[in-house]
Nucleic acid binder design. Sequence first.
DNA 1: GTCGAACCATACGTTAGCGTATTGACGAGG
DNA 2: CCTCGTCAATACGCTAACGTATGGTTCGAC
Lengths: 181, 181
Amino acid sequence: MPRKSRNDWLRAALRRLARDGVDRVLVEPLAKDMGVTKGSFYWHFRDRADLLDAMLERWAEIATEAVISQAEAAGSEPLARLERLVGLATEGFDAELELALRDWARRDAAVAAALEEVDGRRMAYLRQLLRVAGFEAVDAEARAFLLYSALLGDQLLPNAHGRFRRKRVLREVFEILARPR
Amino acid sequence: MPRKSRNDWLRAALRRLARDGVDRVLVEPLAKDMGVTKGSFYWHFRDRADLLDAMLERWAEIATEAVISQAEAAGSEPLARLERLVGLATEGFDAELELALRDWARRDAAVAAALEEVDGRRMAYLRQLLRVAGFEAVDAEARAFLLYSALLGDQLLPNAHGRFRRKRVLREVFEILARPR
DNA sequence: GTCGAACCATACGTTAGCGTATTGACGAGG
DNA sequence: CCTCGTCAATACGCTAACGTATGGTTCGAC
C-alpha cells in the first residue's frame, strides 16, 4: 500500500492512541510505522493538532452508537439487551481506545466534552432499558452506573478476579444488576 | 523552601503524574515547577528512569493499604466498612493518581505488576467483607468487583448521572451491593 | 572561622520531534 | 505523450528535553 489516505493516517493514529496514549501519537514515529515519511502527513493534515482534532471527531462518530447498536442487535427484550451489553465487556468494543480517550480527556477540555456527550447517550440508553425492565428511577440510575462502570472496570482490573473466571463473574454481575428482586 | 529533598521531588512528580500522565513527568519542567534547576534533580536521582521507579515504589506503599485502612476506621461492622468504602469515592483517595497509574500500567510491565498486586489485596479485602456480610462466594466476588469498579467509574464518569446527584446514586449503589436480599 | 559534604546553577553537547520549503514521482484526462 | 494535480521524499532550522561536567553555595561539626 504505497499511497496513504487521510483515513489511513487516522486509523494508524487511533491504533497508536489506544496502545500508547495521546502523548505518543507523534507524526514522525507514526510515519515510520506506516513506511512513509512525514512529507505525506503534512499533505493530509495541517499539523499535529489537526490530526488530534480529526481523531477525536472520528472516535465520537464511531463510539456514540457502537455500544447501543450492539445491544439492539440482541433483540427487543430489555433483559436480552442488557445481557448482551455485559457480554460486550469481553469482546466487541475497543476498551483500550476508550481508556486512552478517558485519559486524554483529563487534560483536554474538548475531549472531555465529547466524552461527556457519549457517556450521556450511553447512560440514557441504559437507564431506559432498566426502567422498562421495571426498576424505579434512582434504582435504575444506580444500576446503569454500575453496569457501565463494570464494563470499564473489566478492562481496568484484568486479573483481579479471585478463583473465578472472568465470564463467570460477569454473568453474576448481570444477575445482580438486571434481575428485579 | 529553598533546598529540596528526594521526597520533595517525589511528591511533585506524583502530583504531575496524577494531573498529566507519566509522559509528562519531565525533569526540566518539574524543576521549573519547584523553582529550582535540574542540577538538584540529578543530585537526588540517577536519571529519569530512577525517578519513575521511585514513584512506583512510593505509590505501592501508599496505595496498598490506603483503601483498606480507611475502611477499618469505620468500625468493625462489615456493612459499615462497606458503606465507608463507597463514601471513599467522593473523597479520600486520590482517584486521579489511580487513573494515571492505570494508564501507565498499560505500557509498562513493572507498573502493571505492582498494580495487580494492589488490586489483588483490595479485592481480597472486599471479598472477605462481603462474605462475612453473608454473600455466597461467586456473589461476593461479583459484588466486590462491582464495588471496586464503581469507585473507579465514579471518577471516570464524572457527570454521567442523569437528574440525580452523585451522592444519591452512590448511596443507592451501596444499597444494591451490600444489602442481602 | 574553616572544612568537607550536601546541594544547586550553569553551560554544554546530543537527540527527537515539529513544521516549512522545495523538489520529485506517478497516474489519469486531454 | 504530456501535463496537471496529487501525494511523497529530502533537507533544513528550531525547540524541548536528556544527561554530563564543572564550579559555586550553604550548612553543620568541630
